[in-house]
Amino acid sequence: EVPFKVVAQFPYKSDYEDDLNFEKDQEIIVTSVEDAEWYFGEYQDSNGDVIEGIFPKSFVAVQG
């Protein structure tokens, strides 16, 4: 069931425009499960802007 919160276990950096880049310990709200390997989610950056994109499930852990 979406949405749910995950926390980055590792930093994720990608050159693909659709990917969500983040640092370790970033909290991310997952709004869609793309497939067995990928989530789609969002978070607010330090400027208060909402950043969204896809990212690999293996880089995050589900909270709770």
Rank of each mutant, 00 (worst) to 15 (best):
D15S: 12
G41I: 04
Q9I: 15
I28W: 04
D25T: 05
E37G: 10
Y43F: 08
E27M: 10
V33F: 07
V33A: 07
E23W: 05
D35P: 05
G64N: 11
E34S: 11
F22L: 02
A36R: 09
Y16R: 15
K5M: 10
K57G: 05
E17D: 11
Q63M: 14
N21F: 10
E27C: 11
G41M: 03
I51Q: 14
F4C: 06
G53A: 02
D15H: 11
L20A: 02
W38I: 05
Q26S: 02
A8K: 00
Q26H: 03
K5D: 00
Y39S: 00
F55C: 04
E23V: 07
V50K: 14
V33Q: 07
Q26D: 02
D15G: 12
D18W: 15
D35T: 08
E52V: 13
D19W: 07
E42N: 14
V33E: 06
V7Y: 09
F40L: 07
P3H: 05
Q63W: 12
L20C: 05
S58T: 08
E23S: 08
P56S: 03
D18Q: 14
E52N: 11
P56A: 03
V50T: 13
G41P: 02
S32N: 11
P11K: 09
Y43L: 05
F10K: 12
A8F: 04
Q63A: 13
D25W: 11
I28G: 01
V6D: 00
Q9S: 09
D45H: 07
D49C: 14
V7K: 10
A61H: 11
G53Q: 01
I51G: 01
F4Q: 00
P3F: 06
F22N: 01
K24N: 04
A36W: 08
D18H: 14
S32Y: 09
V62A: 10
S32R: 15
T31R: 08
K5Q: 06
D49H: 12
K57H: 05
F4R: 02
F10Q: 10
S14N: 03
S14K: 03
Q44Y: 11
I29R: 06
F10A: 10
L20P: 01
E17K: 13
G53L: 04
G64C: 13
G48I: 01
V2Y: 06
N21Q: 10
A36K: 09
K13D: 05
F22Y: 01
I28Q: 00
D18C: 15
F55M: 00
D18M: 14
Q63N: 09
G53H: 02
D25N: 11
A8G: 03
E17H: 11
A8W: 04
Y39D: 02
E1V: 13
E17V: 13
V30I: 04
F55Y: 01
K13Q: 09
V30F: 03
Q44I: 14
V62K: 11
E1W: 13
V2D: 03
V50S: 06
G53T: 01
P56H: 06
G64M: 12
A36N: 13
E52H: 13
V60E: 02
G41A: 03
V30Q: 02
F40P: 00
D15A: 12
G48T: 02
G53F: 04
G48L: 05
D35V: 06
P11I: 06
I54T: 14
Y16M: 12
G41R: 03
T31P: 02
Y39I: 00
D15N: 13
N47Y: 09
S14D: 00
S32K: 14
Y12N: 03
G53E: 00
D49W: 10
V60I: 05
G64V: 12
I28E: 01
Q26M: 04
E37W: 13
S32V: 07
D25G: 15
N47V: 06
D49K: 14
K24V: 10
E23F: 06
W38H: 14
S14H: 02
Q9V: 15
K57E: 04
S58M: 08
I29T: 14
V6Y: 02
G64L: 10
Y39H: 01
Q9W: 08
Y39F: 09
T31L: 10
E27D: 05
D25C: 15
Y12F: 09
I29L: 14
K24P: 04
E17R: 11
D25F: 10
K24E: 06
D19L: 07
D25L: 06
F59A: 11
E34P: 15
D49R: 14
A36L: 10
N47W: 07
D25A: 06
E42T: 12
S46W: 09
D35R: 09
K24R: 09
P11Q: 09
V60W: 04
T31F: 05
D35C: 13
V60G: 02
N47F: 09
Y16E: 12
Q63R: 10
F10W: 12
D45S: 09
N21D: 05
E42S: 13
K24Q: 08
E37D: 13
Y43M: 06
V2R: 06
V30K: 01
F4V: 00
V30N: 01
V60F: 04
P3D: 02
E34V: 15
E34H: 15
G48A: 03
Y16P: 06
F40A: 06
E37R: 07
D19I: 08
Y43Q: 00
W38M: 09
E23D: 11
E52R: 15
V62R: 12
V62W: 11
E37I: 09
W38L: 07
F59D: 02
T31M: 07
V6F: 04
N47D: 07
K13R: 12
F10I: 09
F59W: 06
I29A: 03
V60K: 00
Q44S: 10
V62Y: 13
Y43I: 06
T31W: 10
G64T: 12
G64H: 11
Y43C: 06
G64Q: 12
D25R: 05
Y43H: 00
P56T: 04
S58Y: 09
E27T: 09
N47R: 09
Q26V: 05
K24A: 10
I28P: 01
P3S: 05
S32I: 06
G48M: 05
Q44H: 10
V33W: 07
S14T: 09
F22W: 02
S58Q: 08
K57S: 11
I28N: 00
G53V: 04
G53W: 04
V6I: 03
I29H: 04
Y12P: 00
W38R: 10
V60D: 03
Q9T: 10
K57Q: 10
F55K: 00
D25Q: 05
Q44C: 13
W38C: 09
D49L: 13
G64P: 12
Q63C: 14
G41W: 04
K24G: 04
V33N: 09
A8P: 01
D18L: 14
I54V: 11
A8H: 02
G41S: 02
T31H: 06
D49E: 10
E23T: 06
P3R: 07
D45W: 05
G41V: 04
A8E: 03
Y16K: 15
D19N: 14
D18I: 11
I51H: 15
G53P: 01
D19Y: 14
K5V: 12
F22R: 01
Q63H: 10
E1N: 12
S14P: 01
E34A: 14
K57V: 08
V2I: 11
K13A: 07
I54C: 15
Y39A: 01
D35L: 08
L20E: 02
E23K: 06
V30D: 00
D45G: 08
E1R: 13
N21C: 12
V6C: 08
E37Y: 14
E27K: 04
E37F: 14
V2C: 12
V60C: 06
D15W: 09
F59K: 09
F59M: 12
I29N: 06
K13L: 08
D45A: 11
W38Y: 12
D19S: 14
G48S: 03
V33S: 06
F22C: 04
G48F: 05
F10G: 05
Q9C: 15
E27Q: 08
V60H: 01
S58L: 07
D19Q: 15
N21K: 09
N21A: 08
S14V: 01
D25P: 02
F4D: 00
F59V: 11
K5E: 04
Q9A: 08
E42K: 13
V2H: 05
V60P: 00
I28H: 01
F40I: 06
D45M: 10
F59P: 02
E42W: 15
Q63I: 15
F4W: 03
E23M: 07
Y12H: 06
G41E: 00
E1M: 13
V60S: 02
V62T: 10
A61R: 13
P56N: 04
Y16F: 12
E42H: 15
D35F: 08
Q9G: 04
A61W: 10
D19F: 14
S32M: 09
S46D: 11
S32Q: 10
A8Y: 03
D49P: 02
V50C: 14
P11F: 06
Q9Y: 07
Y39M: 03
V6P: 01
D15E: 13
K5N: 06
P11L: 06
Y16D: 12
Q26K: 03
V50F: 08
K13V: 10
A8S: 08
F40Y: 13
I54S: 13
S58P: 03
E1T: 14
V50I: 14
V30P: 01
